[in-house]
Amino acid sequence: MDVVVLVKYVPDPTGTPKLGEDFLVVREGTDGTLDPGDEYAVEAGLRTVEAHGGEVTLVSMGPEVAMSAIRKGLSMGAHRGVLVTDPALRGADALATARVLAAAVSRRPFDVIFTGSESTDGYTGTVPMAVAGLLGIPALTFARKVEVGEGAVRIERQTDLGYDVIEAPIPALVSVTASAAEPRYATLKGIMAAKSKPVEQLSLADLGLDPATVAPTQRVLGITPAPSKGAGEIVQDGDGAVARIVDLLVEAKVI
């Protein structure tokens, strides 16, 4: 089974990302790592090939430093890596990213694509569906559980109220949540073996993509800091208190 995992290099998620003058996240010259959300996708991919045989290919788009995210995935056990990097991709939006990833993925046959649900820096959460759409394959999103079978993949999709069971024929794309598969630690042996695993670095030209087709279609005009948290609401005892609390809990999607 040929498994692809889409991975992203993000600024150190324990810190506050820095924004440049164009309001884009500064990605070079800062500490970065494999997006922690993508580790679940890598784990799901590794478990799939452990059960069914085959190889896991990591595909990423980003600056050259993004190779370290691929190496992290390789040291967890993935087999090969592809990084698309091109100066023309700076500031690429979600659609442009999806076009590039779809083009990189479609160079070889594949059965299942795993992704995280959203990145920990941009949080658009739209790239997985866009990639599936561009490739013309089903997108099974927000999987809290994944079962890859013969010719089909079945997931439990996390919803606000519970979960849906969804099945689709493969090839298909699956985006996973943090409940899907606890990621394994990169082992020292994995780190040392990662050095000799095949890694490709591709430009837009290598993919046959015209920079115009992946030019950003949107521009950030300004950034406003999130408002500081106000005081909470104190519900006084009395008529309507219970109903008000229930309303608040529904609003918070707790019940």
């Binding site: 370290s68 190496r71 992290k72 040291s75 630690y185 990169a186 082992t187 020292l188 780190i191 040392m192 990662a194 050095k195």
Partner: peptide
């Protein structure tokens, strides 16, 4: 790079 990766893996 490999030394840093090993260090990071043990730290994790």
């Amino acid at each position: 790079e490999e030394e840093r990766e090993i260090r990071d893996a043990v730290r994790a």
